[in-house]
């Protein structure tokens, strides 16, 4: 029975961790929709949703319930299997990214070293890029299977946007990787905790580029062309209704949460609480402080995402492509060259 010869406790631990992370991302995404509407309201001198429950806190539940009770429409002549596969893929890829994020340090719980990271693979960042590049499929398959020209156009628009900005995103990260010398997110975080400064100090331009590219990757304004409701006839989810539409929208909010966590981990020290020396705290306290720090940073970034959305108007498509190819990629290359030179001269 060699089949059963693996560490069961390990498996159970990871399974629990995965379940917890997924439910946390779902809840965060749910309340991100609420926060989005609140932020939108506040920026426009309104109050945002405040009727469902105290301060409107039950609004996301009401929205979800509404989506569940909507009629499911599958257009005639659409490809039924692919039509359902589209949103499922979107959701699946959104969930998958969280596997390599270190949510906290290692902690001793019940005689076991529990690692708050599902998988510490030595190519962590590349894994994220891989999953992000797969995120295009949900969009494309959904758009094509709808059997609607406008959906297809939007899917093409979205896919080419995602591919274009992935390049700039990767290039902006290479400079950071030159400094850290590792692709593992755990190592990068540890370096920031032990070093004096977070990576944003060494890589301000890289941070900015990465931030802009993640806005584009998450289809957030000002780059939300794949789902421009008013001027571009909505987006790839035009034909979707009910919870399938909900999946697309929800996947986007999960993506936003995860990409904010990734930015926090890469550039803002991950679970490093500023001005606190984690090594002096006891295991569980350090863990809680770390979680607090990581989530604080993430929520701040989510707020900035929303703030940007309700401030900037949408780019035109040619402007978007110009910015991506002629603006961000040369800047990322410049950043790379400068970082390379500095690394070369300082690390004799």
């Amino acid at each position: 029975m060699t089949l059963l010869a693996f560490d069961w406790a390990f498996t159970v631990e990871k399974a629990i961790l995965i379940a917890v992370i997924i439910s946390i991302s779902l809840v965060v995404a749910m309340y991100a929709t609420y926060a989005e509407r609140k932020v939108a309201g506040f920026i426009q001198d309104r109050r945002g949703p405040n009727r469902a429950g105290p301060f409107g806190l039950l609004q996301p539940l009401a929205d979800g319930l509404k989506l569940f009770f909507k009629e499911e429409v599958i257009p005639t002549h659409s490809n039924k299997f692919l039509f359902i596969l589209g949103p499922s893929l979107a959701m699946f890829t959104a969930m998958m990214t969280s596997a390599v994020i270190p949510w906290g340090g290692k902690v001793e719980l019940g005689g076991r070293m529990v690692d708050l990271q599902v998988a510490d693979i030595n190519i962590g960042i590349l894994y994220i890029f891989g999953v992000v590049s797969l995120g295009v499929y949900g969009m494309m398959i959904g758009g094509w299977a709808s059997n609607n020209k406008f959906s297809l156009m939007a899917a093409l628009r979205g896919a080419s946007q995602a591919i274009s900005y992935e390049l700039a995103m990767g290039l902006s990260l290479i400079a950071l990787l030159m400094l850290t010398g590792s692709l593992s997110l755990r190592t990068i975080t540890d370096q920031q905790i032990q070093g004096n400064w977070w990576n944003i100090v060494y890589q301000p331009l890289g941070f900015l580029l990465f931030f802009i590219c993640s806005l584009a990757e998450c289809n957030r304004a000002p780059f939300d062309l794949p789902e421009a409701e008013s001027e571009l006839n909505m987006g790839y989810h035009q034909e979707y209704s009910s919870m399938k539409l909900g999946f697309f929208l929800f996947a986007e909010y999960i993506n936003m949460f995860i990409s904010c966590t990734v930015i926090a981990t890469l550039f803002l020290g991950g679970y490093d609480m500023p001005f606190v020396d984690e090594s002096q705290l006891s295991g569980v306290t350090a863990l809680l402080v770390g979680l607090l720090a990581l989530f604080g940073k993430t929520f701040l970034l989510i707020f900035i995402f929303m703030w940007v959305r309700w401030t900037l108007p949408r780019f035109r498509y040619d402007q978007l492509m110009n910015l991506g190819w002629k603006g961000l990629i040369p800047l990322a290359l410049l950043n790379m060259v400068i970082t390379g030179a500095v690394v070369l001269f300082t690390m004799k």
Binding site: G41, F42, D45, R46, T311
Partner: peptide, 10 residues
């Protein structure tokens, strides 16, 4: 927009 965020709501 941040200024408006903290403004009194109408």
């Amino acid at each position: 927009t941040l200024k408006h965020f903290f403004k009194k709501k109408v």
